[in-house]
Design a protein around this nucleic acid. Structure first.
Ligand SMILES: [Mn+2]
Ligand SMILES: [Mn+2]
Ligand SMILES: [Mn+2]
Ligand SMILES: [Mn+2]
Lengths: 233, 233
DNA sequence: GCTTTTGTTTAGACGTATCTAAATCATGTT
DNA sequence: AACATGATTTAGATACGTCTAAACAAAAGC
C-alpha cells in the first residue's frame, strides 16, 4: 500500500515531529540523506495521500493514518532487529541496517509469526519499545537520560537510542549492554561524563551527546520489570 | 546493484530460455504479468547493462553476468523458502509469495547466516536445488517427470516444480510430500494419470500438466541420497 | 521598518517501470 | 511472390523519486 521510501519518510517525520513543532523540510532532508526539494515534493505527495498535514514553509506533521504507518514500520523494524539477534546471531550494532531494508517487505503473516516465535517481546535489542499489533506504544516507565544523571547516581542501562553501529560496538566492548549497572563518577564541565561500569569495574568516559542517547532506570527493583539482555561481542 | 524488478526479469528469462531458444518477449510478458512493450523496454535496458543478449524480434538470452544474477536470486529465494518452513512454521504452499518479495532484499551476510543455520541444504521445500554460494547448481540425479512414468512404476517424489499454492495444498492434503512413494496405476488416454499414494493407500488422479511438474526418482536406494521431508497441513 | 540571511519552494530535468495506440517486422498461406 | 496474421517494437504518456538552479518567503539583524 505505502511505498518503501514513503515508509522511511513516515519514520523520519515521526521521530522529528514534536507535540508543538512539526518536522521541518531541512530536518527531514538531513535525516533522509536527500536534498530539500526532494522533501518538498515528497511531502506534497504524502499530503495528497492523507499521510501528513502540510503547509508550505510550515513543515509537516503526521495524520492519524501517517502515524499508524510509522508505527507499523517501527514495529516491523524492531521485531526484525530482535529476530536477527535472537535467531541469527547478530549483535546489536549490526541489526539496524538489515532491518531498515527488510522492514518494508514483511507480510502481516510473517510479522505475526516472528512475534510469536520471540514471545511477544516488549523491547528491541536496543531497549526501544516494540509497538503492539494494534499499533499502541506502551510508553516506558521511569527512564532518564544518562546525560542528566548527577554524580553518584547508580542506575541500570535500559535503552540505547539512535546510535551508530560504531558507537554501539564501542559500548558493547566497554561492557555496556541492556541491564548493565553504572555509577556516575564525574560530570566534567566540558561535556563529558564518566561512569564506572559495575560488571567490569572499569571507568568509562563518554561525551554528553553519546550519554544523552543512553537511558537508565533505578537499579534493583526486584522482578516486575522483566527484561532480557543480549550481545557482547 | 541490480534493482528488484530487474532481478525478477532475470529469473523469468532464466526459466524461459533454453539451450537453443531464447526467451521471447511475449513469454516474458506473460511470466511477469506485464504488457509486451514493457518487456521490450526492459530488455533494451538490460542489454545496455550487459545482463542479456538481445536483438530486436529475436528475444533475449542471459549473459554470463545475467545468469549469475538469476542464480543469486534463485539461491536467495530457495534458502528463504526453506528458512520459512524450517524456522517459522510455514508450509510449502505458503512460502513462495513471501520469498518472492524478500529474495531481493537480503544482505550477503544474512544469506550466509541463513544457510549456516539450515546446515547448507541442497534443496528447497519443493525439492528444487539451491545454488551454492559461488552460484553453481548441483544438477540433480536420476529424476523423471511423473507424467512420463509407465503404468506399474513405483517411485519416490523428489521435486514439485512451478506449482501454484492451490496445487501444492491439494497435493499435501492428498498425502504427497517430498519422499512420498507412489505407484502409477493408470495412464488414461485423455491426459490423466492415476497413482496410489503408498502412505495413505489411496488412489490419486492428476491431469498430465500437474503430473508433469512432479518429479520422481527410483525408490529405496539406501543412504547416499540424503534428503529431508517437510509439510503436511 | 528595511534588509540580509536562511530556509523553502518552484521549474525543469533525468532514470525507472509501466501503460495504450500505432507502426513495423517476420512468417506461414495462398 | 504477395498477403494476411500475429508478434514485436516505437511513440507518446504517466507516476515515482531524485537532482540542480533559480525564485521566493520568513526570520533575524540592524
Ligand atoms: Mn527503511
Ligand atoms: Mn533498535
Ligand atoms: Mn521476486
Ligand atoms: Mn521453491
Amino acid at each position: 500500500m505505502v511505498a518503501p521510501k514513503v515508509e522511511d519518510y513516515l519514520k523520519s517525520i515521526y521521530r522529528l515531529q514534536d507535540r508543538d513543532t512539526p518536522a521541518m523540510t531541512a530536518e527531514v532532508a538531513a535525516a533522509m540523506g536527500v536534498k530539500p526539494p526532494t522533501v518538498t515534493a515528497m511531502l506534497q505527495r504524502m499530503a495528497d495521500d492523507g499521510l501528513v498535514h502540510y503547509q508550505r514553509y510550515q513543515g509537516a506533521r503526521l495524520t492519524e493514518r501517517g502515524e499508524k504507518g510509522a508505527l507499523k514500520v517501527l514495529r516491523n523494524h524492531r521485531l526484525l532487529e530482535l529476530f536477527l539477534t535472537e535467531e541469527l546471531g547478530y549483535d546489536w550494532a549490526e541489526v539496524h541496517d538489515e532491518a531498515d531494508v527488510l522492514e518494508h517487505h514483511l507480510s502481516v503473516t510473517l510479522v505475526e509469526r516472528i512475534e510469536v516465535l520471540l514471545g511477544s517481546p516488549a523491547v528491541d535489542p536496543h531497549g526501544e519499545p516494540i509497538p503492539t499489533a494494534d499499533l499502541e506504544i506502551r510508553e516506558c516507565e521511569t527512564q532518564q537520560s544518562l546525560a542528566e544523571c548527577q554524580e553518584g547516581t547508580v542506575a541500570v542501562v535500559s535503552e540505547v537510542r539512535e546510535s551508530s553501529a560504531d558507537v554501539l560496538s564501542y559500548l558493547a566492548n566497554s561492557g555496556i549492554s541492556l541491564g548493565t549497572e553504572l555509577e556516575v563518577v564525574e560530570t566534567a564541565p566540558f561535556g563529558m561524563i564518566t561512569c564506572e561500569v559495575r560488571t567490569t569495574e572499569k571507568p568509562l568516559s563518554l561525551p554528553t551527546d553519546v550519554a544523552a542517547e543512553i537511558y537508565v532506570s533505578r537499579p534493583a527493583e526486584p522482578a516486575e520489570n522483566e527484561r532480557r539482555q543480549y550481545n557482547e561481542a
